[in-house]
């Protein structure tokens, strides 16, 4: 028996919004530590890694490890039926071919359940090595979303250059060029609003705007985002989900021909 109950059901709604444009299907791997999902987009340029820890749920039971392959469009449709303040419970029997989502309104006066067929997915699973990154940038997630949106008007690619002075986002295209420089916040009153840079080596990398814009669908999950970069390796864009886990996106860089 698998059962995971979350009073803050809107978290699951937001998680689906954060992955459904990038992934069409994915496997939710559940064990007694929690729920994990790892999947690449169709073109194998980016990867989503989601972790929701068991202790972040209001009730969590997983008697046997269970892998549930799901069509994410279908899951998103079902979760759209949940109210923002609803409690969401996911349930499945051992070896089941369906999963059930139960939504309860705060006053318990409305209870809905949706049963969905599971899929057998044979998806490639990548081993992501532990990496010490040369630069990590923490910044408000809404600011990052704004920068990605603004710069994608100028070109398909965005250059992210991190030095000890700050971080510069640039794009160039037919209409011209755009540069956005963020300096490290001098004094931090509210950590959520700060730009904090940790740098061992300066790094400049180029990424596809389209994927960065997909990643920013996670903005409502966290007030801050962390970008981790080293030369010639994928970028990591991490949104921490309060008290329960994180969603990380990996994006392969564009390399000069």
């Amino acid at each position: 028996m698998f059962e995971a109950r979350l009073l803050r059901g809107s978290i699951l709604k937001k998680v689906l919004e954060a992955i459904k444009d990038l992934l069409t299907q994915a496997t939710f791997d559940c064990d007694d530590s929690g729920i994990q999902l790892q999947a690449m987009d169709n073109s194998h340029v980016s990867l989503v890694s989601l972790q929701l820890r068991a202790d972040g749920f209001d009730k969590y039971r997983c008697d046997r490890n269970i892998s549930m392959g799901m069509n994410l469009n279908s899951v998103a449709k079902i979760l759209k039926c949940a109210g923002d303040k609803d409690t969401v419970t996911m349930k499945a029997q051992d070896n089941a071919d369906t999963v059930t989502f139960v939504f309860e309104s705060p006053n318990q006066e409305k209870v809905s359940d949706y049963e969905m067929k599971l899929m057998n997915l044979d998806l490639e699973h990548l081993g992501i090595p532990e990496t010490e990154y040369s630069c990590t940038i923490r910044m408000p997630s809404a600011e990052f979303a704004r920068i990605c949106r603004d710069l994608s008007q100028f070109g398909d690619s965005m250059v992210i250059a991190c030095t000890k002075e700050g971080v510069k986002f640039s794009a160039t295209g037919e209409i011209g060029s755009a540069n956005i420089k963020l300096a490290q916040t001098a004094s931090v009153d509210k950590e959520e609003e700060a730009v904090i840079i940790e740098m061992d080596e300066p790094v400049t990398l180029t990424f596809a705007c389209q994927y960065l814009n997909y990643f920013t669908k996670a903005t409502s999950l966290s007030p801050q985002v962390q970008l981790s970069m080293s030369a010639d390796v994928p970028l990591v864009v991490e949104y921490r989900i309060q008290d329960i886990g994180h969603i990380r996106y990996y994006l392969a860089p564009k390399i000069e021909d």
Partner: peptide
């Protein structure tokens, strides 16, 4: 000009 790398170039199959 830049060309897009693919992710499995960096990460091994688990």
């Amino acid at each position: 000009l830049h060309s897009q790398e693919s992710l499995p170039v960096f990460f091994n199959d688990a």
